[in-house]
Simulated scan of single mutants.
Amino acid sequence: MEHTATPDNPEHLEICFCPLHGLLDTISKKWALMIIAVIGNRGSAGFNELKRCLCNVSSKTLSNTLKDLEEKGLIYRQVVDQTPPVVRYYLTVSGWELRELLIPLLAWVMKNGGHADEGCPIHFNAEHVR
């Protein structure tokens, strides 16, 4: 028998989403979590590298999403002083924490009918989830 939480069930918790305003707007955008996944999987990524991994993202959308993620403190941008200058993106501590929180969500999605697209460059290994 499946357990279902209800308002009269003592396990029911009241949840307030107010703290998510602003941040939720950023991470719910189409490419945001995928960008976090790619940077996290690789340790860092450049703009063109992200564009290649995300195939269908436009340069403008990628640029705007990177700016939003940087403003929210989830990634940071580092310019390497060389000719020509090279820009790399890294996850901040908060970005790494968010990435780790996504793993149980991805496991739940896979358990409930989700699937990876063939040839997806963003990998999730469910064997590591407990």
Rank of each mutant, 00 (worst) to 15 (best):
M1L: 11
E2R: 09
H3W: 07
P7M: 10
P10E: 12
P10K: 14
H12R: 13
L13Y: 13
E14N: 13
I15L: 15
F17M: 10
C18H: 13
P19S: 12
L20F: 15
G22W: 02
L24I: 06
S28T: 08
S28W: 03
W31I: 01
L33K: 13
V38C: 09
I39M: 02
R42P: 00
A45P: 02
G46N: 03
F47A: 02
N48G: 00
N48L: 04
E49F: 05
E49P: 00
L50K: 01
L54P: 01
V57A: 01
S59Y: 08
T61H: 13
L62W: 09
L62I: 08
L62M: 11
N64V: 04
N64Q: 10
L66F: 03
D68Q: 10
L69G: 02
K72C: 14
K72L: 05
G73T: 14
V79T: 08
V79W: 01
Q82T: 14
T83A: 11
P84S: 08
V87A: 09
V87N: 08
V87C: 12
Y90I: 01
V93R: 15
S94P: 07
L98R: 03
L101H: 12
L101N: 11
L102G: 11
I103C: 07
I103P: 00
M110W: 04
N112Y: 10
G113K: 05
G114L: 06
A116F: 09
E118N: 07
I122H: 05
I122F: 06
I122V: 15
F124N: 00
H128V: 09
H128L: 14
R130D: 11
